[in-house]
């Protein structure tokens, strides 16, 4: 985030108050959140593995080939749960366990699309669909470019 470097530093009163707030407001339960994220993230991974195996066995694919339809299925499930209004309720407990895997990406796109449906196809869904996922795509592409550059320079 672009922060204005010329901004005034906190006054004594502001500093004292922000310290008071910091002492009073409890920190999020990090341990509990991490454990839940671990469990739910693991669960998502197990389901993903299940679909990979299904595609591998039933459709006679290699593990690498079965990955793509398995990811697509996970995206579909994430999107469906969002549409049914369940995803945000599970994610409240699961936290990063559900947000970090591809299910979270699906949720961010579908929830935005649903939210801005009233503004129409062009100005609503079309332009607002990636309002949350846009950064992921932008920085994903930028990172991929640099990783690719390093790969091209040093590996070949």
């Amino acid at each position: 985030m672009a922060r204005d470097p010329k901004r005034k530093p906190l006054t004594v009163d502001q500093k004292r108050y922000t310290e008071m707030v910091r002492d009073l407001v409890p920190r999020p339960p990090y341990l509990r959140n991490s454990l839940l994220a671990f469990l739910f993230g693991g669960l998502v991974a197990i389901i993903g593995q299940f679909f990979t195996d299904i595609y591998r066995i039933t459709m006679n694919m290699s593990v690498k080939e079965a990955g793509n339809p398995a990811v697509a299925t996970m995206i579909f499930i994430g999107a469906l749960l969002t549409g049914l209004g369940v995803f945000d309720k599970i994610a409240r407990y699961a936290g990063a366990g559900l947000v970090v895997p591809v299910t979270g990406f699906a949720n961010s796109v579908v929830s935005s699309a649903l939210e801005f449906k009233r503004e129409g196809l062009v100005f609503g869904i079309g332009s607002k669909m990636f309002i949350l996922a846009g950064s992921v795509i932008t920085f994903g592409v930028v990172t991929a470019f640099f990783v690719g550059l390093i790969y091209a320079l040093f590996v070949f």
């Binding site: 945000d88 599970i90 409240r92 947000v99 949720n107 929830s111 935005s112 649903l114 309002i131 949350l132």
Partner: peptide, 16 residues
């Protein structure tokens, strides 16, 4: 939707 996230967006809420 104006101040934070779409209503169906999933995230864990902080206590405050």
């Amino acid at each position: 939707r104006q101040y934070r996230y779409p209503t169906e967006y999933g995230f864990s809420r902080k206590p405050h």
